[in-house]
Design a protein around this nucleic acid. Structure first.
Lengths: 161, 161
DNA sequence: TCAGAATGGGTAACATAATAACGTCTCTCG
DNA sequence: CGAGAGACGTTATTATGTTACCCATTCTGA
């Protein structure tokens, strides 16, 4: 298992995607689940876009680029599989999906979403998780899952503005 | 302006709703915006439900209970108004709306959502906001809005389980 | 008081997101 | 091989959200 996070800059994006796919292959093999051609392709599409991708965006690509006859259930089933196995995250505020940077251990992501370029940056901040956990504990609430999605301007877009 | 938060227990729910509506009246008057009958009614419906309410739920109540002919745009316009003026919050992970406990100052809520009884508890935890702000600052991200939605079990449902 | 603008709201159609139900194929595994 | 499970295609349907257009009311200022 790689220790290096999968963060990457645009210039090595292709490598980053293939790295993610290879890691997904290994993970699925270890879990005894099948990363079928369709599921792998959907994962590739999600990874190729640093912007969160909607289910119907994926659907369109599968139809137009791949020539595959695909209806919504096809895509949603693949996405469900990828979500269950921690390979992608769902961004609730966008109804969209993005590749997980750290699929090797289960977690829920925290995201910084740029309103200008729509890039989503995944974070894993224990401080945020802890703050939520403490606040919940104060009112006796048992946390099972967190959604943290922050909208704003990313550093490049701030400079460009 | 009242200093008392609008938190309330079920037994004084009617009072709590009327309090919220009265506060909304004052706020809109101060802002010079019009809390029309329709908008006020939608706000009342949202407040009457401690569970987040979907736009189409509101639509159904307006049609069935009030006998008002209402189509989606009617409800969404009212909700947009209430959102803009900080009188309700939108829960992205549920596509639903809930009354804001602290409409007197603009903010984005943090929510604990019970997966069993579907009650949503609004929080205003500076610790969470600060943790997010610090994490964002580290990567040069300018925060404009936060979505914090935590799913789990509320205290009463934990005891009942 | 009246003309015109601004605002609120009704109507229809459309766009996007997600699920249900059923059938077929294929890949194991005994 | 043959039974069962899993994966995927197909059709239809439901849920959620938006757009365009029109009409009525209200506000404003000559």
């Amino acid at each position: 298992m790689s220790d290096t996070p999968l963060a990457c800059t645009p210039h090595d994006h292709a490598h980053c995607v293939s790295h993610a796919l290879a890691e997904a292959d290994q993970l699925c093999a270890r879990q005894g689940v099948r990363l079928t051609a369709l599921r792998r392709r959907v994962l590739e599409l999600v990874w190729q876009s640093h912007k969160p991708l909607g289910a119907y965006d994926i659907l369109a690509i599968l139809s137009e680029q791949d020539g595959r006859r695909a209806a919504p259930p096809t895509v949603y089933r693949a996405l469900d599989f990828l979500l269950e196995n921690g390979l992608v995250h769902r961004i609730a505020s966008l109804n969209a999906f993005i590749g997980c940077n750290h699929p090797e251990h289960p977690h829920q992501g925290q995201f910084l979403i740029c309103r200008d370029c729509h890039t989503a940056i995944e974070m894993q901040e224990p401080a945020i998780r802890n703050a939520i956990g403490e606040a919940a504990a104060q009112v006796g609430f048992a946390v099972e899952g967190e959604t943290v999605e922050v909208v704003g301007l990313c550093a490049p877009c701030r400079r460009a503005a």
